[in-house]
Nucleic acid binder design. Structure first.
Length: 208
DNA sequence: CACATGATCGCCT
DNA sequence: GGCGATCATGTGG
């Protein structure tokens, strides 16, 4: 029995009431590292049975395509699983790790350039502040699965990403990515970004 | 076809 | 700091 991709009811939001504005295509067609930073404070959301469910992103990681040994698209690897990474920026790429965790990525750059930003953590509701404090937990809480991989975040009716409000501007820390020790030199690249003031980051982060 | 291995997490010591 | 859960995917025979 597979769990239904149902979002956690406590994540119900009303984008309009919050003054959130959906990110447009151009947002995703910029430098991937810039996007990874700009996603801190942005909202990832999906609609389920007529209502929106979403959360404020507080931790991301950039994956830089064919030249990045930590990326699934390293050396241009192109299989059915990774295919969404080759889509135009603004699509979603979801993969399964350790047989149980669905991890959501925002695809960036023009079509053919397999870069993406992994959504590592988002803020949970007051009664469960760490509900989305990790990529696997984020996917579970929003009910995102590999069935959503390849879907477009732009102009859709049931999946969306809302740009970070102008203020408050988050204080952003950076550090090497997690779980990519096998990637040689790339393992040390500072491509992980997080909100220094959020209690929901997935791990104790070195300050900066 | 067979097998090794994760872009993880929570619990254990 | 270590480990088990649990399986799709990629690779090689």
């Amino acid at each position: 029995m597979i769990a239904k991709p149902r979002p956690d009811a406590r994540l119900a939001i009303e984008p309009g009431a919050l003054g959130l504005v959906e990110a447009r295509r151009a947002f995703y067609l910029r430098d991937t590292v810039d996007i990874a930073r700009d996603l801190i404070g942005a909202y990832i959301a999906r609609r389920w049975r007529g209502r929106w469910y979403g959360a404020r992103i507080v931790e991301t990681e950039a994956y830089l395509g064919a030249g990045d040994a930590a990326a699934h698209s390293f050396r241009g690897r192109r299989t059915s699983r990774v295919e969404p990474m080759y889509a135009e920026g603004g699509h979603l790429y979801v993969f399964l790790v350790y047989g149980m965790h669905h991890c959501a990525n925002v695809v960036t750059a023009r079509a053919g350039r397999p870069e993406a930003v992994l959504l590592r953590a988002a803020e949970g509701p007051p009664e469960a502040p760490r509900l989305l404090s990790g990529p696997g937990k984020l996917g579970a809480a929003l009910g995102l699965t590999v069935a959503d991989s390849g879907r477009d975040l732009v102009g859709g009716r049931s999946l969306a990403l809302f740009a970070r409000p102008r203020k408050p501007r988050p204080r952003i820390g950076e550090a090497p990515r997690i779980g990519v020790d096998y990637a040689g030199e790339a393992a040390g690249w500072p491509l992980r970004f997080f909100d220094l003031d959020s209690p929901a980051v997935s791990r104790r982060s070195s300050r900066k």
